[in-house]
Amino acid sequence: MPATKDITEAVFQETITRAVNEVFNTMLGKKATLVPLAPGNHTASDTVDLEHPHIVGTVGFIGTINGLIYLYMDVGFAQHCAACMLGMSDTEIAEAGDETVNDAIGELTNMTVGTFKNQLADRGFPCKLTIPSILRGSHFRIEPISSATRRIYRFDIGGRPLTADLLMQHGD
């Protein structure tokens, strides 16, 4: 069985990029472009302006590899994505309330992490998805435990930023 260390940085980057692109293109008709980051260790707050309200969707994957992915988007973009997905206008989605937006972002995250982990599963790392959860707020910071490796990817989706925070547990 292959080990996690066999997965190169390039594979992680290609896999997450393909996953984000496939989901946003299929469900919302939007193209996602990976924005290169300067070399070095990053946290989500390096790429996300958490001074303003954000919605973060998270889904984990457990099996021969374990980890989770957080998708960060500002509230306005999240509402726009939810509206596109559900065929509603921006006004209608605002009237539909936070719960509807949360559910849509949870599902977008679920699809993105699903597409990511399915590619890894086909490379010999089978795992299952967890149920999505949502964080909302501003001025917060998510810290990984010490046994996790963090990778940050930033995407431009029609001029709006999306940050994917990939945490993989060591020793898998």
Binding site: N110, M111, V113, G114, T115, K117, N118, A121, D122, P126, C127, K128, L129
Partner: peptide, 9 residues
């Protein structure tokens, strides 16, 4: 109709 799509699964 699921996000679980690995071949084995």
């Amino acid at each position: 109709l699921t996000a679980e799509g690995g071949k084995d699964h």
